[in-house]
Structure formats: C-alpha cells, structure tokens
C-alpha cells in the first residue's frame, strides 16, 4: 500500500513537473533565441501601440526584429528608406533585419490601417555612427514663407473640363517662367492662370484655353508613373479619411460634420461638433479648394500635418519624391 502511494505521488509530481518543465524550458529557450533580436508586439494604439517605441542602432550593424501582433493586422516599415514593408498578422511571428548605412533618426510606422488612431503607431530608431547625419532640407513651404493654415480658395476655376493637349498647342507662346519648376511649386493653378491671363501675349486665348495651358503645365511637372505612385500612396495612407474618391468622406471620418466653408472661420475647438471639434477633411474634387493651393502648400500640409484637425504628419515617413507624387495625384481629383 505504502509503495503504491509512493509511486502515485512520484507520478503526479513527475507529470506536473513535466508540464511546468515544458513551459519553463520553452520560456528560457525563447529568451535565448530572442537575445540577439528585438521582439516587438504590435497592438492597436488604444491597446498600447508598439510595445517598443525607440530602438538604438549603429550604422552598418544589422538589427534583427521579431514582430508579432496581439490583435489585428498591422504592418512595419521605416520612413524614408527602401526597407520593404512587412505585414504582421495576429499571433504569428515575422522576422526582418534592418541595416542602416547613415546615422540619423528614423521613424518606423504601422502600414496597415488598424483603427482611427492607426497613424499614431510610430516609433523611432536612433542610428549612431560615423558619417554625415541624414538631414532633411527645410520643407519648401517654409523656404517660400507660405502660411499653410490660411484659407486658399481659388479666385477662379475652369468652367469645364481642362485639356492639357489643347494647352500644349500654346507652349511656344508662353513666357519662360511658366516652365520653371519653382513657379509650378510655389503657385496655385489659379494664381498661374491669373498671371497668364494678365500676359498681353496671351490675350487672344480664351479663359478656357488659359486653363488648358495651366493644366498642361501641371502635366509637365508630373508623369504617369508619379501619378501611379501617388495613387498607391493615397489609397494606402490617405483614402481612409480623405475618401477613395477624394471627396473627404472616408470611412474614418464619415461620422464627423461636413466641412462648411461659411462656418470654417469660426473654427472653435470647443464647438460641440462631435469629436473634439473635428470636422471632415476638404473635398479634393472641389476645384475651388484644390486649384487655389500650390504644390508647396499641399506638400507642406502633408509634411507637417494639420495640427488639431486629425491630419497626421508625414514628414518623417514620405520621401520628397513620394510627397511630390502624392501632390500631383491630389490635383487629378480636381481637374
């Protein structure tokens, strides 16, 4: 009897011990495996966002990341680099290795929409080491002194659809400044139209023909591949708020009050219009709004974000080319 009891006790202890052992050994082994890599859990911002928000690195020293998600699909990418975006699925692990050759501060961010606060899922990687720091020139809107928060309704808009083809017919008659990239960048289409309208050499053109010329200038400053890049970036990053058709009615903002230009001047943050006074973004298909803005203004808004309006800041994320592509895509809504 006593012998059986002893065997029984040993067995129970042994079995429970094995169960605990599997766990403990697994835990320690996991710790070891992860010693040379950084494990990052992605969670919706409401649940804590990235579990690691700042990473220190050295130039030319690879960092191994082990990424997983605790709730929904997320993505991982590093702003202003060519590192391919990595999708992170709930409960699954995905590994990626980062290598930086220039010191500087990089921003990593979530690439798959994970709720209204998706854009808040960001963290920084501080890369130290030899070599010149990655620096960004001050954005054009600051160089040009454009106040991106003022109203910029277009003074004039085309009466009907514009035709860059028609506009190209008058290319030879145009003053030389119009083909200057600087001119394109710092002027809104409406401004350029008014300047061209005032040119005595173009007085024979109809108003619509001047618009065609402006459209042609805008076309000259972009390319189909830029528009395509812009379209992809827009769909992935902007459409959830600005709407898939640019109407400012994206699914994340559709419960907010509509943008009303009359009421806009009294933009009281304490007004009772829903979520902390937030309103829907502008309608990009509204020529009045878009044709009154210069590319520099749009890129400024993208870089800086619209403080307090809910528009995130994309400065640390998009390269200059990407922003230019986005801007040229935005104009396609309005033409």
């Amino acid at each position: 009897m006593v012998k059986k009891e002893r065997i029984a006790r040993v067995l129970v202890v042994l079995f429970v011990f094995i169960a605990v052992l599997i766990f403990v050994v697994g835990w320690l082994k996991n710790q070891n495996l992860n010693a040379d890599s950084i494990q990052i859990h992605a969670r919706m911002p409401e649940n804590g966002g990235w579990s690691v928000t700042s990473i220190n690195a050295e130039t030319n020293q690879p960092i191994h990341l082990k990424l997983t998600s605790d709730d929904v699909v997320h993505g991982f990418a590093i702003g202003k680099t060519n590192h391919p975006a990595v999708d992170i699925f709930p409960g699954e692990f995905v590994e990626t290795t980062l290598l930086f050759d220039k010191p500087g501060t990089y921003t990593f961010y979530c690439t798959r929409w994970c709720g209204v606060n998706h854009w808040r899922m960001r963290g920084t990687i501080d890369v130290r080491g030899e070599g010149p720091l990655v620096t960004n020139p001050p954005p054009a809107y600051l160089q040009l002194g454009i106040d991106i928060d003022t109203e910029h309704e277009a003074e004039v808009i085309p009466a009907t659809d514009v035709s860059p083809q028609t506009g190209s017919l008058f290319a030879d008659d145009l003053p030389s400044y119009v083909l200057d990239q600087e001119t394109y960048f710092s002027n809104s289409p409406a401004k350029i139209w008014m300047r061209l309208r005032a040119e005595p050499t173009l007085s024979e053109l109809s108003d619509q023909e001047v618009w065609d010329v402006v459209a042609w200038i805008w076309q000259k400053n972009t390319s189909p591949s830029m528009i395509e890049t812009g379209q992809t970036l827009y769909a992935e990053n902007c459409a959830a708020c600005h709407g898939e058709t640019g109407k400012g009615d994206g699914i994340m903002v559709r419960d907010l009050p509509k943008h009303d230009s009359d009421e806009h001047s009294t933009n009281d943050p304490h007004s009772e219009s829903g979520m902390g006074g937030l309103i829907r973004p502008h309608d990009f298909t509204d020529a009045n709004h878009v044709l009154g803005a210069s590319p520099a203004l749009f890129s400024g808004k993208i870089i800086r974000g619209g403080m307090g309006t809910g528009m995130p800041y994309w400065g640390p994320i998009f390269t200059e080319e990407q922003i230019n592509a986005l801007v040229s895509y935005i104009y396609t809504f309005a033409w």
């Binding site: 029984a8 067995l11 129970v12 079995f15 429970v16 094995i18 169960a19 605990v20 599997i22 766990f23 835990w27 997983t68 998600s69 605790d70 709730d71 709930p90 409960g91 699954e92």
Partner: peptide, 27 residues
Amino acid sequence: FLLRAVTLAGFVFTILAGLFGSVVGSH
C-alpha cells in the same frame, strides 16, 4: 489514477499557457 494525473498535468499546463502564452486566442 494515471488519467487523472495526466489531466491534472494538462490542467496546470493549460493555466500556464493561458497566463503566459500568446494573447491571440487561436494561437
């Protein structure tokens, strides 16, 4: 007795997995 010992060990294992394992249910 053996079945009980196994289920008890499984029970302990389940609690450990639940407390320290993935927060994603399917995993």
